[in-house]
Design a protein around this nucleic acid. Structure first.
Length: 152
DNA sequence: GCCAACGTTGGC
DNA sequence: GCCAACGTTGGC
């Protein structure tokens, strides 16, 4: 089993929304690296750090779990969607997404600053300069540390 | 296949 | 709202 970090802007989709909805298709990823992780590497049961980006403050808000493996992202075919991609066809989809299920919400957000302040996490991808990848792998040991920091 | 121009992400 | 860092596009 693998460990991941997935970013979402809470104004668009927060951990509270996931808690309410139970599961969600992780639509709208339009970056090949992020897509490849979802398409090739994610398996049902993989654990996810749910990260709030563009938030005040940004940070890990809780845990999620991969509940279904990759399928074509429906929004690429939808002309009305902001994620519409004219180059994609149903025969040859370009974008894929996984289904993510709610895990746990941290009692308190583990902020980006908290992550930076923890020396044991300094290798974490999300802390590297210029790291913009919205779906990224996380080391098991880093995952466990962040989970503890979140009180779980 | 290079690289300048452009668009996006995301912290601040 | 700014802007650094990065990814993508398209002319050549």
């Amino acid at each position: 089993m693998k460990y991941w970090l997935m970013k979402s802007e809470p104004d668009v989709f927060s951990i509270d929304q996931l808690k309410k909805d139970k599961t969600t298709w992780w639509e709208g990823v339009r970056n090949y690296q992020a897509r490849n992780f979802m398409m090739k590497d994610m398996k049902v049961g993989d654990a996810v750090l749910f990260y709030h980006s563009n938030a005040e403050p940004p940070g890990v808000a809780g845990l999620a779990v991969i509940s279904k493996e990759a399928e074509p992202d429906k929004t690429q075919f939808d002309k009305r969607s902001e994620y519409y991609d004219a180059k994609a066809t149903r025969e040859k989809p370009i974008w894929f997404c996984v289904e993510v299920g709610f895990g746990d919400k941290f009692a308190e957000l583990v902020s980006l600053q908290d992550l930076r302040d923890n020396k044991a996490l300094k290798e974490m991808l999300v802390l590297q300069k210029g790291s913009r990848l919205s779906v990224q792998p996380v080391d098991k040991k880093h995952f466990e540390i962040v989970k503890k920091m979140g009180g779980l």
